[in-house]
Simulated assay, not measured.
Amino acid sequence: MPTDLRIGILGAARIAPKAVCDPARVVGGVSLAGVAARNREKAQTFADQHGIEKAYADYDELIASPDIDLVYNPLPINLHAEWTIKALEAGKHVLCEKPFAMNVEEAKAMLAAADKADKRLIEAFHYRYHPAFAVCMDWLNEGRIGDVTRIDADFSVQIRDTDDEIRQFPETGGGAMMDLGCYPLSWALHLLGSDLTVVDAKAETTRRGVDQTLLARLQHGKAWVHLTTSMAQGTPFNADMTIAGTDGLIYFKNPLAPHAGSTLSMRRADGSEVDQLRPISPISTYTWQLAAIVDALKTGQPLATEGQVIIDQQAGLDAIYEAAGLRHLRYR
């Protein structure tokens, strides 16, 4: 029996080196066993560049291979359900990129396939595995800012509007909330729990019809959640979150990728600082994620980004698009 978790990658995606290839070089018990792309030549070039053992002729060949244990699926969102289900039916675990699916019905079908195959299906919300986010959760759970009254969270950055940018196209699951805003929604879900109700949402759309900017208000008990996102041309990078409570607030600069530069601090209601996390681990969120997956597959322990939280996340996205008058982008 192989001792390493043998990973196969579907598609020579831009995110794959950062998300899987680089972490595999530092996480023990992992091997990059294969990659498949639109053609073998492209797959071979990618394999040569990133030290992957084998280039497969197509996705089906990789999924069928007995030399693959876990499939990483970074394909366009409209292909997530099809190829994730095929991989699960072939007896592979799957790490599926975010956002997980086009809509909650696809997400349910994917999870049902995982249950039937008795395989693990994980959504790649890498930030959740970084120690800085764990500290933020601990501060809340310890009641250090009292009861949460409001969360303001934003992830915005320009996404170029070109003919080869799949995040700009309705048919491939494009849109600011899908690609960027899914993170602030996920932050709120992991901090507050699943009982988030969408109150209203407002979007501006692009020439292709996807959401360019989107603002959404949600409610969790007495707490309000304000999510904002924009991929408009000229938008500078911003990822931050403020959590206000009855006794103080937490400010988290860059919860998306704390390893790339972040601030996590807690203040009293009068503005005086109570605590600040120092140092923040420079190990990448993707490395923490892969290490957690390797450990979970060995021990059988559950992961923070699998199971019901996937349904809650996708249902939240569906409800936000519905409230913004853009349901047709999720159900085509």
Rank of each mutant, 00 (worst) to 15 (best):
I280A: 02
D270E: 12
D195W: 07
M266E: 11
A260M: 15
D211R: 00
T197M: 12
A216I: 00
N254A: 12
A239N: 10
K298V: 06
P170N: 08
L180H: 03
M266R: 14
G174D: 05
W187V: 01
H259S: 14
H259L: 01
P255I: 08
I293R: 03
L189I: 13
G248E: 13
T228L: 10
M178E: 07
W224C: 06
T246S: 15
E165N: 15
D295K: 14
L290W: 13
G221P: 07
A176T: 08
I243E: 02
S194L: 03
Y251I: 08
P184R: 03
T213A: 12
T228S: 15
G221S: 11
P279D: 05
V199S: 10
F169V: 03
T197F: 06
W224H: 09
L215H: 14
L249A: 13
G175W: 03
M241R: 01
E273S: 00
R278S: 13
V198S: 01
G261Y: 11
L218P: 06
P255L: 09
Q219F: 07
T197S: 13
S272N: 09
T235L: 05
T235A: 03
A216W: 01
L196H: 04
L191Y: 06
G234R: 02
V274N: 02
Q168A: 10
G248L: 12
G209E: 04
Q289L: 12
K253Q: 14
D179M: 09
K222W: 00
W187F: 15
L180N: 02
K298Y: 04
E204S: 09
N238K: 13
I283G: 00
K202W: 06
L215Y: 09
F169P: 04
L192G: 11
E165D: 11
R208C: 05
D270P: 12
D195Q: 14
T205F: 05
Q219T: 13
T229M: 05
G300N: 09
V198C: 08
K202D: 14
Y183A: 08
E165S: 09
R278K: 11
I293T: 07
S284Q: 14
G221M: 05
T242R: 14
T229D: 06
N238S: 13
D195K: 14
L290S: 11
D270C: 11
Y251Q: 13
G181L: 02
R268G: 15
L227F: 05
L249P: 00
A269R: 13
Q233N: 13
E165Q: 14
M177C: 04
P236L: 10
